[in-house]
Design a binder for these strands. Structure first.
Length: 349
DNA sequence: AAGGCGGGGCT
DNA sequence: AGCCCAGCCTT
């Protein structure tokens, strides 16, 4: 319990002033927690304000279309969070009378809410005694106790969950959880932690043994793969041909331009001779490059994208079911991924 | 148990 | 170039 009390004392001194800490509204806490999954506070903050301003209650949120949610989410990444939030909001509206649940078990059953988020919401909104276990907590515990079990292994999750649970201050679950996460984020940082002025400098296993930079241990995943995206911009008078991405790949349900993917760079000749291209745009289409190949980096993919303008003699030969002409002035309303809205910002549409 | 899923900032 | 970020879901 010394550990937890020291942590909370540190927290009183150094805690961050964050908007979602000023409310006990479980809906708003849920918003913040989903937004902050794998996302830095500074990056998520504007999105939090955007969402609370647009949707005052979870019922307002549920009554929106998924497209609206994804549009507000545009640019934040991991878009399944937005899609799952929409599903969760409708469950709360339809099954829980619009009252956002605050108990761990019920929260855990909502789509997009895992063990961390259920613990966070139930403790913050209702002081339920559930210990959070996020990247910050893994790091603080690994260093303080000198635990070398990889944090992303099944065994590691068990070990750390047990220690996190033991350390939880049952009298102040909300404050303890906030404290250990803020401590990890501000003080016990991944790089260049502030060990010299740390309250635990005498008791921290990693610091006393000079192993701070070795902990926590994490198993390496697979490297990145390369993909080559060829986008086709087809404008006629005041319309633009857009395409909605489907399941089973990145950017599900977001809009982009008709796309030809290949496993290598393609030039104009390659494309004009491509079977897929000819089947949709015909033999005598005119092609020019609008934007030279640019590299877009995702966690496990390097996407090399080139943007082409297509001019047809007549009409499209065929139109895919997920293709639609969009009025140019409605373009802003579509939820697009980074590659697309960055291109649009740079061009003069 | 492992892989997929964004985008950005820091080293 | 690699790592990490208030992780979750599917296979």
């Amino acid at each position: 319990m010394i550990f937890g009390e020291e942590l909370q004392a540190w927290y009183q001194e150094h805690k961050r002033d964050l908007p979602w800490r000023e409310t006990h509204d479980a809906y708003k806490i849920w918003l913040s927690e989903i937004i902050l999954q794998q996302t830095r506070v500074e990056q998520g903050m504007p999105y939090y304000y955007r969402f609370v301003e647009r949707f005052n209650t979870v019922v307002d949120f549920a009554n929106a279309d998924e497209d609206d949610i994804l549009h507000l989410w545009q640019g934040l990444g991991y878009y399944s969070r937005g899609r799952n939030m929409h599903k969760a909001a409708r469950i709360v509206r339809d099954q829980y009378n619009g009252i956002f649940p605050v108990d761990y078990k019920t929260l855990l059953s909502l789509p997009g809410v895992g063990e961390y988020t259920a613990a966070a919401i139930s403790s913050f909104a209702n002081n339920e005694a559930q210990a959070v276990l996020d990247g910050n907590v893994f790091r603080v515990l690994a260093r303080y106790y000198g635990i070398e079990t990889p944090i992303n292994s099944t065994e590691g999750k068990k070990v750390f969950a047990a220690i996190a649970k033991e350390n939880l201050d049952h009298n102040h679950p909300a404050q303890y959880n906030q404290a250990i996460m803020d401590f990890g984020a501000i003080h016990c940082k991944p790089k260049q932690p502030l060990c010299e002025q740390c309250v635990f400098r005498l008791s921290c296993y990693a610091f006393t043994r000079g192993e701070v930079n070795q902990l926590p241990v994490k198993l390496k995943g697979k490297g990145s793969r390369d993909r080559y995206f060829n986008y086709f911009i087809l404008k006629n008078s005041d319309h633009l041909l857009m395409s909605k991405r489907g399941e089973g790949d990145v950017w599900q349900n977001l809009y982009e331009f008709p796309l030809l993917e290949s496993d290598h760079t393609m030039d104009i000749i390659d494309i004009l001779n491509d079977k897929w291209f000819v089947s949709y745009f015909g033999q005598d289409a005119d092609l020019s490059i609008l934007q030279q190949q640019t590299k877009h980096i995702l966690s496990h993919q390097n996407i090399y994208a080139t943007f082409f303008e297509v001019r047809l003699k007549g009409d499209l030969i065929q139109k895919k079911s997920n293709w639609d002409y969009v009025i140019l002035k409605d373009l802003d309303k579509l939820a697009k991924h980074k590659l697309i809205f960055t291109f649009l910002e740079r061009s003069n549409f």
